[in-house]
């Protein structure tokens, strides 16, 4: 079957989709967007988390046919979405956002970020994950980023218990979660400072 939907703001069409395929498979294998990860394919690990019409869901449990006409945001679209959010903000465009826009959303050379000069093409939560050491193998990272980003959108100053609850659907095997907690706290703090 054929499926038409929007991914990260761009219309996409997938052809010859087998009816049992998941949204995750279509993203990864048909649309060249492997950022969403395939760790369990049973909704237990959250590595495949994407936003479906704004809501975080496990893309492994969404049948491809169910996304017809709908909007999906993946980890690959997080930075763009953060920029749009910032643009829509009454405060206007922050310095970093302006820099990012000026750079045309292009990747600067891969390298370490710093708190003072965040990587221009990254969203605040992405930058915070790097800065706080929340990334080890990184396989859980895309799903965590989508979930954390959505939580911070809803709840800009979460308590630790709020963070833990919001991320309880995302397994990480490397970090023991402490640095992930640090990263989300850091992103919230920077967001609060308008950085």
């Amino acid at each position: 079957m054929r499926v038409n939907f929007t991914v990260n703001g761009r219309p996409q069409e997938a052809d010859d989709v087998w009816e049992g395929e998941s949204l995750l498979y279509v993203l990864r294998e048909r649309l060249g967007l492997p950022g969403s990860k395939n760790a369990c394919e049973q909704g237990e690990c959250g590595s495949c988390t994407v936003r479906l019409d704004g809501v975080p869901v496990c893309s492994c449990l969404v049948a491809a046919g169910q996304v017809e006409g709908r909007e999906v945001v993946t980890v690959e679209g997080l930075a763009d979405q953060a920029r749009q959010r910032a643009r829509g903000d009454a405060r206007g465009t922050s310095l970093d956002e302006a820099k990012a826009l000026a750079a045309g959303g292009q990747e600067s050379p891969a390298g370490e970020g710093t708190g003072a000069f965040p990587h221009a093409a990254l969203s605040p939560v992405q930058q915070a994950f790097i800065d706080a050491g929340a990334v080890q193998c990184g396989f859980c990272t895309p799903g965590l980023l989508v979930a954390a980003d959505e939580m911070l959108e809803r709840n800009p100053s979460p308590t630790d218990a709020d963070i833990r609850e919001a991320l309880s659907g995302n397994l990480c095997r490397c970090t023991g979660y402490e640095k992930i907690m640090d990263a989300v706290r850091l992103a919230a703090a920077r967001q609060g400072e308008g950085v």
Binding site: P34, G35, E76, A110, Q126, G138, T141
Partner: peptide, 20 residues
């Protein structure tokens, strides 16, 4: 910080299951 950190947070870092 990790040299592969940016690739890993943007989803561009290719794991063995991402190859095509």
């Amino acid at each position: 910080l990790r040299p592969d950190g940016t690739l890993k947070v943007t989803g561009e870092f290719a794991y063995s299951s991402d190859l095509w």
